[in-house]
C-alpha cells in the first residue's frame, strides 16, 4: 500500500492493522511533507523494509500475523538490519509496555491517542537530515 506525494521528505512506513489509524497517521505525515507507505501488519512491514529503505517506522503493537514487538525485533535483526528509527504507538499503557518496546529496538513508545502536531514533531526530529536528497 502506498500513498506517495511529490515531496522530497523522508520516507516513512506506517504499520497498523487498523485502516483508520493508518489513514490518520499517513495523512498527518503526508501533509507535513513526508513520503508515506503503509503496511497492515508486521509481516507486511518486514517485507516492505526488505525491499525499500525507510527513514522512519511508525509501528502499532497489536496486529495479526506479526505483532509490533516481533516486527521491530525483525527489523533490527540481520534479516532486515535497518537502523532507521522506530516509533511505536499503541493503546497499551500497562507497566512494562514501553520497556518491551525499547527492548525490541524501538526508539520511542507513545500511547494513543497522539495528537497530529506531536506525531509530526517527533517524526521530524527522528528523521532530521534524512530524505532531503531523495
Amino acid at each position: 500500500m502506498t500513498s506517495e506525494t511529490e515531496t522530497t521528505g523522508a520516507r516513512v512506513l506506517v504499520v497498523d492493522d487498523a485502516a483508520t489509524v493508518r489513514l490518520y497517521h499517513s495523512s498527518l505525515l503526508l501533509e507535513a511533507g513526508f513520503r508515506v507507505d503503509e503496511a497492515a501488519n508486521g509481516l507486511e512491514a518486514v517485507e516492505a523494509a526488505m525491499a525499500t529503505p525507510f527513514d522512519l517506522f511508525v509501528v502499532d503493537v497489536n496486529m495479526p500475523k506479526m505483532n509490533g514487538y516481533t516486527c521491530v525485533e525483525t527489523l533490527r535483526s540481520e534479516t532486515v538490519g535497518t537502523e532507521a528509527p522506530v516509533l511505536m504507538i499503541s493503546t497499551e499503557d500497562r507497566p512494562g509496555d514501553a520497556d518491551r518496546a525499547y527492548a525490541a529496538g524501538a526508539n520511542l513508545y507513545l500511547v494513543k491517542p497522539v495528537s497530529g502536531d506531536r506525531l509530526v514533531r517527533i517524526a521530524t526530529m527522528l528523521t532530521a537530515g534524512k530524505g532531503m536528497s531523495a
Binding site: T20, V21, Y24, S27, P113, S115
Partner: peptide, 9 residues
C-alpha cells in the same frame, strides 16, 4: 483528535 479525524473521514 484521532477519533474526530476518523469520523470526519
Amino acid at each position: 483528535p484521532f477519533l474526530r479525524f476518523t469520523v470526519q473521514a
